[in-house]
Design a protein around this nucleic acid. Structure first.
Lengths: 342, 342
DNA sequence: TCGAAGTGTCGAAGCGCTTAAACAGATGAT
DNA sequence: ATCATCTGTTTAAGCGCTTCGACACTTCGA
């Protein structure tokens, strides 16, 4: 193993000089810097992470707490995890993966051991028991999602209310009058009312403004439950011509069911999905969809946590921050003008 | 921050005694142990990770290198990542997430800095350039997937050949004579011939044994490409009554296409998917599928890496290990007896 | 009764790094 | 010429933990 002392010897300087070259925390003459850097390269030196963490009291690691649940669309979580990892690397940080099931004790463990300098939490519940722990330990954290009480932390999320509103606008613009919103199963609403409810609220508000008659039905995302949901909608409102689908699992079944019931998309009914573009492109017809970038979510969370860590390190109190990312509606082949009244 | 010295003072012993209580590496009287442990609890002591890593030369972290690619079914990767994390926790280990794009330098960085005691690599290519680096650095590693040359490492994977064979057997048992295998896009075959080719080989071998006429067509997994693939199959072999689908993205489109072309599943044609049970259950009809457990994959990889780390720590040479997990065929509603000759 | 072996605990060195403080030498103002 | 200032480098003190060897005490066989 190559140590900083080896590099120092090789470059003919003291080890503190090597340290200062690497951290840039003191002025070093150009000539010395060059010499040290080439020694570093030549010897293949990598600072020992443990020693660095111990001496500097910073681990250069952020922890990412991911949910175990599978009712949220999993590829999105993976995309976030990966974008967090890559964004963190840009700052010289690595990412430690922690599962949600460790709960508040997990937070205590990570903070207590100094394993991570900060924490990014996904799938935060509105009244999450980890949040008070975070606050009492003074641990720096960024949430992906919104918490009830976000004092002492930074948050980032999609602007789901706007996403819902965009759906309502698009259908109204196309002349639809009766529309249905197919949401998540009731579990999701009860738990982290976050995105599910915010989308619905945004949709409802705009739908009312635009004079749309609308229906909201929750749906578990299986074929059977989608069939049941659709049957109820069509029984209650036979004139429904527009569908907004939030549950990714319900999309495929819905399209199949509409087809078998003799309804053509988009001539007879329009369908908008709230899902990733990649998924929207996979169906036939390709779906008009409203999406926010999952990558961006991860990137912003990393920026937030880095800003907090930097502030603390400079002796400042980190500023709380709250970012909502604006979603985008992409028109594809599943939405069209409302059919003429029959 | 609570240190080991605080605990020692509180319990009225020396800090080395506390250390031995916690590690169990020396005999400690029952009475002292109790006293120390209750001090630990009372003070909420967590050993400082950096100091521990520095002194013991073990970080208690394993790195998990995940692919950036999205052509592999993403939820499976997430499931593996999570099961790795949870299994590692059982051994007192945490998991560091590294993206594939760091390549061999990533391996050097992790090994050189002592950040991780071992490495679990997913999505290994047959002739992966990280493997020689691993070997030259003496880094302990476990692969999820099989490499060309696995000397010096442990591997675990599904037994895809058996999975393919199970598909052939099931269709043959049901009396089908002409079957088609819908594989991945050609990129997957060229890159990590691993699972794609092994499945196909297993299928082909058994199909020949059982006297099945079969066709293999690659497919990108989009609606359009599935449509093209199916059209070609039906043009080349109009009598095809059995389908094996490996590309998860092609499943939905295939079912839709079969339906629109007037073929009923399973009365006219049988469909077997090579995919997770969860996904297989989502379609209508629910699909007969062959699967191995992704969780088990992660668990075994962790066991392997732990065994290697323990061996190295004891001064032994770690034994190479290679595990293939046996897949299971679950019969559901998408396969049935071959239709009578018309 | 004595030495050997075993048991339980402690002291202290050291893991590889960061960083405050000291220091040497050059530069400039007086 | 003298002192203050600045620049670039070194010295040395830890960071909190593990672990080796030492030590005190008990137990046991001869």
């Amino acid at each position: 193993m190559v140590t900083i002392a080896d590099v120092a010897r090789h470059a003919g300087v003291s080890s503190s000089t090597v340290s200062y070259v690497l951290s840039g925390k003191r002025a070093i003459s150009e000539e010395t810097r060059q010499r040290v850097q080439s020694s570093v390269r030549e010897l293949g030196y990598h600072p020992n992470a443990g020693a660095r963490a111990l001496a500097a009291r910073r681990s250069h690691i952020v922890a990412l707490m991911v949910p175990l649940r599978t009712d949220v669309y999993v590829p999105v979580m993976m995309e976030i995890a990966i974008s967090v990892t890559m964004a963190a690397r840009q700052h010289g940080y690595d990412v430690l993966l922690i599962t949600n099931d460790e709960g508040p004790d997990g937070v205590r463990r990570i903070a207590g051991s100094g394993l991570a300098d900060g924490l990014i939490m996904m799938d935060v519940e509105l009244d999450d028991e980890r949040i008070p722990v975070l606050r009492s330990l003074g641990t720096q954290a960024a949430l992906i999602g919104l918490a009830d009480d976000a004092r002492g932390l930074s948050c980032v999320d999609h602007d789901f209310a706007t996403a819902g509103a965009l759906c309502a606008d698009h259908l109204a613009d196309l002349g639809h009058r009766e529309v249905a919103f197919i949401g998540y199963g009731s579990g999701v609403y009860h738990r982290h009312a976050g995105y599910a409810e915010r989308t619905l609220t945004g949709f409802r508000g705009r739908a009312e403004q635009r004079g749309l008659r609308f229906l909201h039905r929750s749906c578990e995302g299986t074929y059977e439950s989608t069939a049941g949901t659709l049957a109820r909608i069509l029984a209650d409102r036979p004139g429904t011509t527009g569908f907004v689908v939030q549950n990714e699992g319900a999309i495929g079944p819905l399209l199949t069911l509409l087809r078998t019931s003799g309804r053509t998309v988009p001539e007879d009914v329009s369908v908008i999905a709230l899902c990733q573009d990649q998924l929207a492109e996979q169906f036939a017809p390709r779906l008009t969809a409203v999406t926010g970038s999952a990558q961006e979510l991860g990137r912003v969370a990393v920026e937030q946590i880095m800003r907090r860590i930097t502030a603390v390190n400079a002796g400042d109190r980190p500023a709380d921050d709250r970012v909502l990312l604006t979603p985008v509606l992409t028109v594809r082949d599943s939405t069209g003008p409302a059919p003429r009244q029959s």
